[in-house]
Write a protein that binds this DNA or RNA. Structure first.
Lengths: 116, 116
DNA sequence: GCCCATAGTGTCAAAAAGGATACCGTAATG
DNA sequence: CATTACGGTATCCTTTTTGACACTATGGGC
């Protein structure tokens, strides 16, 4: 799906489309999902999402931040410390995430469902 | 987002990811959304979704069908008649669609929300 | 005979998304 | 002194996705 987030101001689609446009990208959902449980640092996210590359994770986090779904807090420490957490707006996506998880658990019978 | 539907059998992600992988693609959501209200013919869908090209619509419909979310019924008529409707599985996605719509309506204040 | 509608398909090309890899500065650790 | 961890950037390349456009068959209307 074509990325829209923070790029095209006048998105034309319906609410559903526009919602989806914020959470597309291969890893955004997972990131949001992980953050649902609490603040995480950059490398914690990397470790939680094994297949994501640094570049991709950075990218997706930047977009999520630009869309106001997550908050990025940088600590002026010497080994850099950057923490990511859901914004209020991001947290409000919980029903959507949960609806997807629910559906997946029910309709895509598989194992790793809870692991995410 | 990379398409997974019916291409890679062993999808690895969590339930949320796998769910999303079925409904990505620029137009799938809209298509499902439109079909929520009832059966539609190919060109009806085209007219309802102004910016979709024939090729894209065909493509997305085929994938949705392959994923068992919609049903394609062809009538052996002379001007071809093909009707698309949601399968039970497709209809079961309603909560997800509605959660997204709800969120969009609430968080992306704009007009065309109900039009979809 | 010509054009329209229906529901596509095929081909080509552009654009976007994603991946691989290398690199940065600093400080602690060995 | 070399290595590791941190949180990235920059560059290049491949794959995926999307779009433009032409083409198909058939039957009916004019």
């Amino acid at each position: 799906m074509p990325k829209v987030s923070s790029k095209v101001p006048g998105v034309q689609g319906c609410a559903v489309e526009r919602t989806l446009s914020l959470i597309d990208g291969k890893w955004k959902i997972v990131v949001l999902y992980k953050l649902l449980r609490g603040t995480l640092r950059f490398n914690e996210l990397r470790r939680l999402i094994p297949n994501v590359t640094q570049r991709m994770l950075t990218h997706q986090l930047r977009e999520l931040e630009a869309d106001g779904l997550i908050v990025r807090r940088v600590y002026a420490q010497v080994p850099p410390r950057v923490e990511y957490s859901l914004s209020a707006r991001g947290r409000s996506l919980e029903p959507v995430l949960m609806a997807m998880k629910q559906w997946g658990d029910t309709n895509l019978s598989s194992q790793g469902a809870q692991a995410a």
